[in-house]
Simulated scan of single mutants.
Amino acid sequence: MAHKNPSPAVDIIIEMVDRPDRPIILIERLNPPYGWAIPGGFMDYGEPAETTARREAMEEIGLAVDLVELLQVYSDPKRDARQHTVSLVYIATAKGEPTAGDDAKNAKIVNVWELPNNLCFDHDRILHDYLQLRHYGIRPRVG
């Protein structure tokens, strides 16, 4: 049996600092699984995770981002039905108007109290952890 490793990826919670209440950006996925997600994607070989985050933000929403902090690493083998994916989730800031690109069908700015129900992967858990940190200063638990 061939040895198999999880695929490394990044996801980026992008706060729009040029708008009241610092809403975030979601993308509607063009490819399965369909639904809404925080921007992100797979790391390229030899690419640092921070570079991947900036590249994916530019490709998917057309905005340069400033990375603020690492929220958490999410590695549950069931978080992505396509394959075992390990995601480093960053909190970032941006200004401007997002435009959908790459594998994003749409991009929209949403207030955190208006999140859609059809979030992909484990992004509901990720956004819950983000809100706990943002509003209460509680960092996500490991494991």
Rank of each mutant, 00 (worst) to 15 (best):
R54F: 01
S75K: 07
R55C: 09
V89D: 08
P98I: 00
L71H: 00
Y90P: 08
A49W: 01
L71E: 03
G62K: 01
A57W: 00
V68Q: 12
I61G: 02
L127D: 03
V73K: 07
S75P: 00
L119P: 06
T85N: 10
R55N: 10
G96N: 05
D103W: 11
L88C: 13
D103I: 13
L67V: 12
P48Y: 00
N106S: 09
W113I: 09
G101S: 09
D129K: 00
T99M: 05
E114K: 10
D122R: 04
R79A: 12
K105V: 04
R55S: 10
Y90F: 15
R82T: 12
C120E: 06
P116Y: 01
M58T: 10
Y90V: 15
A64C: 11
E97Q: 14
D76S: 14
H123T: 13
K95R: 14
K105N: 09
N117S: 13
N117A: 15
P48W: 03
V110T: 08
Y90H: 11
D124W: 05
T99I: 15
T93P: 05
V65E: 00
T99V: 11
V86I: 13
V65R: 01
I61E: 02
L70S: 09
I109E: 02
R55H: 04
E50P: 03
R54S: 13
Q72L: 11
A49F: 02
R125E: 13
I91M: 07
Y90L: 14
E50K: 05
D122K: 06
L127Q: 02
R82M: 15
L70I: 13
P48G: 07
P116K: 01
K105S: 11
A53L: 06
A94Q: 06
R54T: 09
I61T: 05
V86L: 11
C120W: 01
D66G: 08
T52F: 02
D122N: 15
D124C: 09
D103T: 15
E59F: 04
R54P: 07
A104I: 07
H123F: 03
L70Y: 03
K78H: 12
R82I: 11
Q72I: 15
P77T: 09
L119S: 04
S87L: 05
D66M: 08
P77C: 07
I126Q: 05
P48K: 01
P77Q: 02
K78M: 12
H123V: 10
I61Y: 01
E60T: 01
D129V: 03
A53D: 06
I91S: 08
I91L: 06
G62A: 03
L71M: 08
A53M: 08
A57E: 01
D124Y: 04
P77N: 06
K105M: 14
L119M: 10
G96S: 07
L88K: 14
A81R: 11
I126H: 01
S87K: 11
L70A: 08
T99N: 03
P116H: 00
T93G: 07
N111Q: 08
R79T: 10
V65L: 02
R55F: 07
K105D: 11
A100I: 04
N117C: 11
V86D: 11
D66R: 12
V110F: 03
D102N: 11
R79K: 11
C120Q: 09
F121Y: 14
E56Q: 06
M58A: 15
P48Q: 04
